[in-house]
Amino acid sequence: MTAGMITFVEAGSTQITDLGRRQGPRYGVPVNGALDQRSARIANILVGNPAGAPLLEMTALDVEFVSDVGILLAVAGADGHLTVDGVTRPWCQPVSVRAGQTVAVRHIQGGLRAYLAVRGSFEVPQLLGSCAPDSVLGFGGRVANGAAISVRRSTAAIFNDHFTSELYCLDVPRASAGFVVDVTDGPDIDDFAGTADRLFEQPYLLTPTSNHIGLRMTGPLPERVAKGEVLSRGVPVGAVEVPPGDELLVLHRGRGVTAGYPVLAVVTSGSLDVLAQARPGQRLRFRRVSATDAAAAARADRVELEALRLRVQSVFSALDALSTATTGRTFS
């Protein structure tokens, strides 16, 4: 089902992704998907999509595209500057775009990744139930300059032309500022004997070899005391490992699902989103938390996002009623 296309004038470093390939790990394939899951959820919520709908993940570089159909979009994640036909529009709010208009996302800052969702989402190839690119399998990848992507539905403009402004302003929960990374003790912490606490002593410096598979950091390294060969086991996303060499490795969503290195600590689900926004050269500090506290924080955050979903639904329902009353058609 295709309602129209968006065509990239400047694709930057953009991928079409979703919340990940959950069936993948069973078959030896990483989950992948949006690295900052919270921001991806927020972008989809703001346009009324299901949480797992395909959306754009834009990393660091400017992006510009033209839509040949009216769409409703929202950008979340790192800060940046959104324009439609050169006019500044709000970040982290639903924004209407008319057919033929040019959308530009520029100056991504304060983080590394921004997420752009379109109401109705995109029509894209899937593998094992997900469109998330997999660099090892060679599935999906970066959007090329000039590429066109199908939009599944059109959305009539909800925009006050007299005041060139949006008709609403939603209260969107913010991410916590700063680069503190919460971890719980890993299942193999005993392999590091007394050296595990080095993780919390000084900040670590993120190196440029970091990517969606893992982040490499320099700093005081805990030492694996236990020797001997380990049988390959499933490794959780967020695993903190000390591989041979002089860097700490924190695995992210593109990680190989099995490995034989002991897991020293595991980054909490919430702090994986923080890591997704860290740039090379950034200093990060690890903080030990209990699994219970981390789960409670994750639940509190999800409650906030569900409240946002309800607010968005209220706005859309009200606009639908207004639109039907004045024009005889619904905006959606």
Partner: peptide, 10 residues
């Protein structure tokens, strides 16, 4: 059965 972070059991 033991936790492997706040989002996994081993």
């Amino acid at each position: 059965i033991s936790p492997s972070g706040n989002s996994a059991l081993r």
